[in-house]
């Protein structure tokens, strides 16, 4: 097996992912609460549905907010060479991606409110046929990398 990439993404990524997971859990939580209250008002609604939803919510929360972010962070690696970008990610299914510089069409950085809070940004690399992502890099690092990649990708492009 080829060596995995060396660079890790920002450590704060774990925090950002956890916050996102907490926020996402609010939706099933509200549903659970609603389905626990509802049976007191209408007959056809059963408490079992509420109980099921509650279990689902807790499992979802434990996985997405406590277990997965750390594992995900540990697996996330990337490395930018002069000729290509090398990315590794995935918990159960590990994916390693090679994107040659001369195939890169454009590079974006993007930042949502949660990432902004932690001073992070996501780098998105597009080829003519695919897009690839390096999530949660430090802002400065992300924009440096973006400039660096677009500089490297500027070598003479033969068609497509």
């Amino acid at each position: 097996m080829r060596l995995p990439p060396t660079e890790r993404i920002a450590a704060d990524a774990v925090k950002a992912w956890k916050v996102t997971a907490h926020l996402v859990t609010v939706i099933p939580l509200l549903l659970t609460v609603a389905s626990l209250i509802l049976p007191s008002f209408v007959d056809f609604f059963n408490y079992w549905i509420g109980a099921g939803l509650a279990v689902f919510t807790i499992v979802l929360w434990v996985f997405s907010a406590i277990i997965l972010p750390n594992l995900r962070w540990k697996r996330w690696r990337y490395e930018v060479f002069d000729q290509e970008i090398y990315i590794q990610h995935g918990i159960l299914i590990v994916t390693r991606t090679l994107v040659p510089m001369i195939r890169v069409q454009h590079v974006d950085t993007q930042q949502g409110p949660i990432l902004k809070k932690y001073g992070l940004a996501t780098l998105e690399i597009s080829t003519a046929a695919t897009t690839h992502e390096i999530p949660a890099l430090l802002e400065a690092e992300a924009s440096d990398l973006r400039d660096q990649i677009s500089e490297l990708a500027r070598v003479e492009q033969d068609d497509v």
């Binding site: 590990v94 991606t97 080829t127 046929a129």
Partner: peptide
């Protein structure tokens, strides 16, 4: 070839197997 991917899940790793996924440009996107 626009990009190259190696994919491997837990059972694959134990058995030294891996899947490969490459993309080319075609009439509709990739």
């Amino acid at each position: 070839l626009q990009s190259f991917k190696l994919k491997q899940h837990i059972f694959h790793r134990k058995q030294d197997l891996a899947s490969l996924d490459t993309a080319i440009l075609s009439r509709f996107a990739g």
